[in-house]
Amino acid sequence: MPGWQALHNELADSGLTVVTVALDLDPDQATPWIAKAEPTHPSLIDSTHVINELFGIRNVPMAVWIDESGHLVRPAEAASIERSPFLDIDIDDSWPERIQQSLVEIKKMPDSSADYRAAIVDWVENGADSPFSLRADEVVRRSAGRPAEHSAAAACFELGQHLHALGDHDAAVDWWKQAHALHPENWTYKRQAWTIETTPPGQPSDLQQVATETYGTTWLDDVLETGGGAVYNTTPDLTA
């Protein structure tokens, strides 16, 4: 959040508005982070993950670019503008094994934060002439495919979200398990469901997400099963 606010400060006078959207089923989990960043940009909460369906968001952070006429000029893609400090951490073999293994996978995640940030600046300066602003057909072509399974996963996730909000957590879990099985690469469905099991209300999120009891898995297990840190969050395709 502080990084996005800084980008907004830097580029707002040049015509860019950063809009951050928290994919948090419980808005109270997101609001302390928002308050701390003291945002002057629109900082919104999407408690039903509607932008997953609309744009193809499947993990965080991901972003889309929208031009002055309200059209997408880049589809949903991984969006980091700061190098993660975890990439440069020295793993200490006295740490718990799960932490060490998680960091090994995190350190495999590709870093294109500097290039991505520079691409945003170039677009703000040059608009449609920027090589990073894509033609409409290219935006559509680069958006992810949506087989029936992924579409069904979205429906299952939404139904679970609603039943959870109504107080029937067990029913929600059953629908969320279906969503996870139908679209394993959608990390927002999984991490959102797991955090409810592993983060006590009002506490900072437990990012290890050892949701073994309810879901039979953990963040690390699923990362390894779906190909490891190198494919966990794809890099933005910054070719013209």
Partner: peptide
């Protein structure tokens, strides 16, 4: 121009 960024807690 709008950069719409998804994040989460």
């Amino acid at each position: 121009k709008v950069l719409l960024v998804a994040w989460a807690s």
